[in-house]
């Protein structure tokens, strides 16, 4: 600690920060059932640890204090890495931050950030982008679908990782007070958008046909057949897919494994076609 006084203050260079950012895209590589992303977090932090601590003992201590349990939504880890890097810089320059303080910040942030990141990234953005791109891919087999999905996702993800790491690094622990107000609003807004889009996607992109003729009506001087599908469509377009989704939702909440639901739909489809209730458009 005496050496800190007669040296240049230690800091991370821009290439260092870029290395943290690059490694972040591989953070979950060693995900394991015991301490989950612990080794991944250290893997990301390695360039910073090597820059900030000179002696092998200090480096080893830094690695070991970051090997504790860690798990969050992977993209939100960039924010935490930024904040932790900020604290490590302070510590390397002689501040009194102990292991416990750094670990408390890490563990304290991972839960709330996962709570925001999961619904926004997995719950909203990916389904919306994927559904949109898959719609393009299914319709005209257009290459634009996959390209839009791949580049749209990665540009958004990498921009977010770089920016949030930067903000985390410059604000340090004060980030929790500065963004505390924004996060719930963001989650709320994303959930609204997600629910709305799911509501729109279900009737649009599910196809069902029930060809059973239940009535014959005279219209425009012609005998028109009214199928079960026509009747449902007249009540509300997309009625059956929405009802099916709600049944699946109810069963998922009863802890039925989704794979069983899919196998169930396979069996019902084959059975339904055999008895003539379900058809192909």
């Amino acid at each position: 600690m005496t050496s800190a006084n007669n040296q240049m203050p230690k800091t991370l260079t821009r290439p260092d920060l870029f290395r943290l950012f690059w490694r972040s895209s591989f953070e979950q590589g060693s995900w394991n059932y015991e301490r989950m992303q612990n080794l991944g977090f250290v893997y990301v932090m390695m360039p910073a640890i090597k820059r900030l601590y000179d002696t092998p003992e200090d480096q080893r201590a830094a690695v070991l204090r970051h090997l504790g349990f860690f798990n969050t939504m992977p993209y939100m880890q960039s924010t935490i890495t930024g904040v932790v890097a900020n604290m490590e810089v302070q510590r390397a320059n002689g501040s009194q931050l102990d292991d416990q303080a750094i670990n408390n910040v890490k563990v304290g942030m991972m839960g709330p950030l996962a709570g925001v990141g999961d619904p926004i990234w997995w719950g909203t953005f990916r389904p919306v982008l994927a559904a949109f791109a898959a719609g393009l891919a299914q319709g005209k087999a257009s290459l634009i679908g996959p390209l839009l999905f791949f580049f749209g996702w990665n540009i958004a993800r990498l921009t977010f990782r770089w920016q949030s790491q930067k903000v985390g690094y410059s604000l340090g622990v004060t980030i929790t007070t500065k963004t505390g107000n924004l996060l719930p609003k963001l989650t709320q807004g994303a959930s609204i958008l997600g629910m709305f889009v799911m509501g729109a996607v279900i009737p649009r992109w599910t196809s069902i046909e029930m060809p059973t003729v239940i009535a014959r009506v005279h219209a425009h001087d012609q005998l028109e057949q009214l199928t079960l599908q026509n009747v449902c469509d007249r009540i509300l377009p997309g009625l059956v897919p929405v009802l099916l989704t709600l049944i699946c939702l109810w069963l998922i909440r009863k802890r039925v494994n989704p794979i069983w639901l899919m196998l169930g739909i396979l069996v019902l489809s084959i059975f339904g076609y055999s008895i003539g209730l379900l058809g192909v458009k």
Partner: peptide, 29 residues
């Protein structure tokens, strides 16, 4: 039957997404 299922199987995925987001106040949306 598999062709019929091809159009329907997606509802399970939609249900998983909705299950993750849905709280009471979101249903109007």
């Amino acid at each position: 039957g598999l062709a019929v299922a091809g159009g329907l199987l997606a509802v399970v995925g939609y249900a998983i997404v909705v299950n993750m987001m849905a709280t009471k106040w979101l249903w109007p949306f």
